[in-house]
Design a protein around this nucleic acid. Sequence first.
RNA 1: CGGGGCGUAGCGUAGCCCGGUUAUCGCGCCUGCUUUGGGAGCAGGAGGCCGCAAGUUCGAAUCUUGCCGCCCCGACCA
Length: 491
Amino acid sequence: MSKVITPRDTDYSQWYNDIILKAGLADYSAVRGCMVIKPYGFALWEHMRDQLDRMFKETGHQNAYFPLFIPKSFLSKEAAHVEGFAKECAVVTHYRLKNDPEGTGIIVDPEAKLEEELIVRPTSETIIWNTYKTWIQSYRDLPVKVNQWCNVVRWEMRTRLFLRTTEFLWQEGHTAHATSEEAIDETVQMLNVYAQFAEEWMALPVVKGVKSANERFAGAVDTYCIEAMMQDGKALQAGTSHFLGQNFAKAFEVQFADKQNKLDYVWATSWGVSTRLLGALVMAHSDDDGLVLPPKLAPIQVVIIPIFREASQKKIIDEKVKEFCADFKAREIRVVYDEDDSNRPGWKFAEYELKGVPVRIAVGARDLENSSVEVARRDTKEKMSVSVEGLADTIALLLSHIQENIYQKAMAYRDSHITRADTWEEFVDILETKGGFVSAHWDGTSETEDQIKELTKATIRCIPLNNPVEEGKCILTGKKSTERVLFARAY
RNA sequence: CGGGGCGUAGCGUAGCCCGGUUAUCGCGCCUGCUUUGGGAGCAGGAGGCCGCAAGUUCGAAUCUUGCCGCCCCGACCA
């Protein structure tokens, strides 16, 4: 037993870290707050990225790339925006190093001070809107629908692998439209893309909703979000889509002439998901034996492990497995045949479970005599003997069952962790004992939300879309309310 | 930035109070043989500036002071 994972019950944070480190998704780095994403973790990210990218293209977006550095003056053009990010920006002040005349080290050359300091992008609205100004003159130039995949830096006080690191990878879409309606449609469309991706690919059920003013993106008119529920009962914001109104157009003077040759400011959106999704994926499905990955995103969907005593048996197994692999690949099933002899089968079983590989196939001489193989699924730990006839079909079907099963499991957990509270005592009790989302009435004010946060550490995660109208009284103040909102403690 | 831990081989650790030959053990690594259906066994072997720097001492992993780094918990945030 070389790799032991701390059980969830013992220490949830440690369990989470153990999974990431021991499954080989990431490592800590020499830079505080920054992580190294290892090949296995990056392969997972690539699958997510590729699918999202396809979905963005299908909805009419194009990729582009904007600079890492943003002139300091840009950031301050939109008042709410600068206030939201000012506290966590890395600033470039110099452009040259030199040998320290006092010693052996290297120092910042004081003579190489930048005239205007550069901010390492925490998000790119400002540099992009400064650029859009030159792209947009007429309604014929609209809409502009651009996305970029990049890294951003937010100097957080406290970091957590994948969930919050100083530097992280993400995509940010930035669109410009002629009308408010069209921009809102775009905002909602991208929210739906995210929700569909989370549910169909990550097997992660999410609640779609709108943020309260407190939780809104700095500079947005409305922030839409998808909220997911983790196994410890804490909520995680998995993606956001913002309707920016004309805020950035006004700040950067982006106007267009409409058909009547009247000038108006353009309407904007921005939307993003990040490597944080990897954290969500880990916390949503994994167990005390390691990662559990949804087949659609798993870098390895099927691992085949040979079991043999003699070289002659191995040869027979090799030939058969070669056929299996060809069949699997023809169906675009990502398969690995692990014939490395330096580890024994038992070791491999444990290792691939730790890495969350959805399906394991053990092939021994005994199996082949019966024209069968042993198939084990990661999600249920179930083992079964399966005929080699039509194996690729069987496995393809099994993979889709696994995808569905882990989604249903996460959904059942999530649904059982949305609890209604009608009194303050109930509200506090649910947060303390059960966790999850608490559905409760709220008087709609920031002051009340702040006070609830102060008292319980819970925040409003979202006001769900298509929320039913219901007469009620605010959980804290008793004032009139017309709908319930979802509260939770969150990451 | 507050509170709590921890820095000894690639990883996890013992030793530290009470200074004293060659720094402990496990995993991993290398060689060989035996093994292979749930993290193999035996034998041999390599690997250390005990986080860094000063100090005390005949002598420091151990005592003193300073510094550095990381993790966990909180405030801030995706």
